[in-house]
């Protein structure tokens, strides 16, 4: 658990972070969202003491972080940033192994961990491990950055716009991976982004920041349903709020489930349980269908969803 208690950070006369309180529960993903210069990165960098705070208290699992040795503190916090910061003179494997090395893990354990992470992030332990950062694509480099942040098996993960510099498709892919990994590992995560869609997608709770203050701290659904101010309303976009709400829930939550899975008709169109309601609606509008079958991961038909259900119960 991370607790920020009336934390303030000044740069000279400018106040970057203004007396904020924030609690991040263990295992949740807290996304700090806001426009550039709102203090979100500053807040993140105070948590691993890359920046000292001007006043206030930051506690990790009840302990003030200023009492710990800064290096030891950081070794227990994965850190991934937008420009990856991969070490250009080291291979991918050595880059990922840096924290295990700093923690003085035995070489065998470290190498196992590196392979495990490469696979987890969808990289090839054979061919990708021996590459140098300049030989990677943007998406691959960012995967390595995330793998490196996870390598020491930290309890806490700090991510500063890790997918900010990627193209839309790669970003979408990595967000999916993020969700998958988070379901698997359950790290307490603080994630900074300026992209509200990314925030809505990844967050357990979102903290909207503006001019150094937290305007609203709530679940994505609450933020969408009850924006605390005109600023938040503007940020989430008035036009497609309904669609964004639909995007938060999956087909599996809303569908009418059959008592018994059925055999799927060959070549029939269908949704997957993990698809969002927004996606389902889009397919229906496109196909002009009022009802669509839902298939499980195994490929069996497990239920149906109708347009009425979507329109009435979705948002």
């Amino acid at each position: 658990m991370i607790e920020l208690k009336s934390v303030t950070r000044r740069f000279g006369d400018a106040v970057a972070v203004d007396d904020i309180d924030l609690t991040v529960e263990t295992g949740e993903v807290c996304v700090l969202v806001g426009s550039s210069g709102c203090g979100k990165s500053t807040t993140l960098r105070m948590i691993n003491r890359l920046l000292p705070r001007t006043s206030g208290e930051i506690l990790v699992d009840g302990e003030d972080i200023n009492k710990a040795d800064p290096e030891a503190l950081r070794l227990n916090m994965g850190y991934a940033i937008q420009s990856t910061g991969l070490f250009p003179h080291w291979t991918v494997a050595r880059n990922i192994g840096v924290v295990p090395d700093l923690l003085k893990w035995p070489a065998g354990k470290r190498d196992e961990r590196v392979d495990e992470l490469l696979i987890l992030l969808g990289l090839d332990p054979e061919t990708d491990a021996i590459k140098y950062p300049h030989q990677l694509s943007g998406g691959q480099a960012q995967r390595v950055g995330v793998a490196r942040a996870l390598a020491g098996d930290p309890n806490i993960l700090l991510m500063d716009e890790p997918f900010g510099a990627l193209d839309a498709i790669t970003r979408e892919n990595l967000q999916q991976e993020m969700l998958r990994i988070q379901r698997q590992l359950n790290k307490t995560t603080v994630f900074v982004t300026h992209d509200i869609d990314e925030a809505l997608k990844l967050a357990t709770r979102i903290a909207v920041m503006d001019k150094g203050k937290i305007i609203q701290h709530d679940t994505p659904e609450e933020i969408l349903r009850r924006p605390a101010s005109a600023f938040v309303e503007n940020l989430i976009g008035k036009g497609d709020r309904g669609l964004k709400l639909l995007a938060l829930r999956s087909v599996g939550e809303l569908m009418e489930r059959y008592p018994q899975p059925r055999k799927r008709e060959p070549n029939a169109d269908g949704l997957k349980e993990a698809d969002s309601l927004r996606f389902a609606l889009s397919v229906m509008v496109w196909k002009n269908a009022s009802r669509l079958p839902v298939n499980s991961e195994a490929g069996e038909e497990v239920g149906t969803v109708t347009r009425e259900q979507l329109l009435q119960g979705g948002a």
Binding site: F11, G12, S36, G37, S41, T42, L51, I81, S83
Partner: peptide, 9 residues
Amino acid sequence: MPLITTLPN
């Protein structure tokens, strides 16, 4: 956002 924020002396 600048990565390294220079502190005024």
